[in-house]
Amino acid sequence: MKIAVLSGKGGTGKTLVSVNLAAAANEVVYIDCDIEEPNGHLFFKPEKIQSEKISIKIPYVDEKLCNGCRKCVDFCKFNALAYIGTKFLVFEEVCHSCGGCVLLCPEKALFERDKVIGEIQKGVSENVTVISGIMNTGEASGIPIIKKLLNDVNKDENHTFIDCPPGSACIVMESIKDVDYCILVAEPTIFGTHNLKMVNDLVKIFNKPYGVVLNKCLEGENPSEKFCIDNGIQILGKIPFDNELGTINSNALISVRESEKYKDLFCILLQTVMKEVQRETVINS
């Protein structure tokens, strides 16, 4: 069973929810797909880390073989190639590694080389297998890292929690493509509701069953809660806004492992989520 945790922007408690749900469960896998700023590992402090470099294929030219016909330049849909005077330019960050130009070149002047764009780290933290994707700064697309992260778990039998990148761009879509259920984390502000709407639209496009966790809840109005009620969206649980949780969190500790109170809160949340997931899979099967 794969469960994705999403939010419209960073800092809403997406990591808090996914880390604590994973910590509250039995044997599970936690995957950090927020590859630009993976921080789940800061909480889990995993041990026995194994890392694997992730690379993509980038074309390069053998200038002795290239006759400057520019077929490759015209062919590349992403305009990653240019031919200036007698200089052949490859824009690595624009290239999508489709390999087309290499196949196309009539002179067989193009070759591929590996370019490392990031890595995947895998470790263990008590009951949780922690897998993080890390993208090198300056890289335009992390999709290959996400693909690799999720490909590996597709073979895994255990429950998996996926900490998605914030927002609703295509990297998020890649992260939720194959999940069974989505948890949207929302803040109780107008802006938070706006972000919630954004991811709400996204999971609907993907036709995923989902529910909302309301984070940072205080007494009084909660526009995100209202949005859920008005739109008939399942509210899975509420996390209060309090100092104790804030302190635990800012010290990079996992509340489930530190306090009975939060252990209860997240265990109940986990049960609710699991019940929903099972109900949805029954309906869909």
């Binding site: 590349c76 305009n79 240019a82 031919y83 200036i84 824009f91 624009v94």
Partner: peptide
């Protein structure tokens, strides 16, 4: 779709 600047420059 992408790389418009590169193509325009070419």
């Amino acid at each position: 779709q992408g790389g418009a600047g590169i193509k325009a420059a070419q």
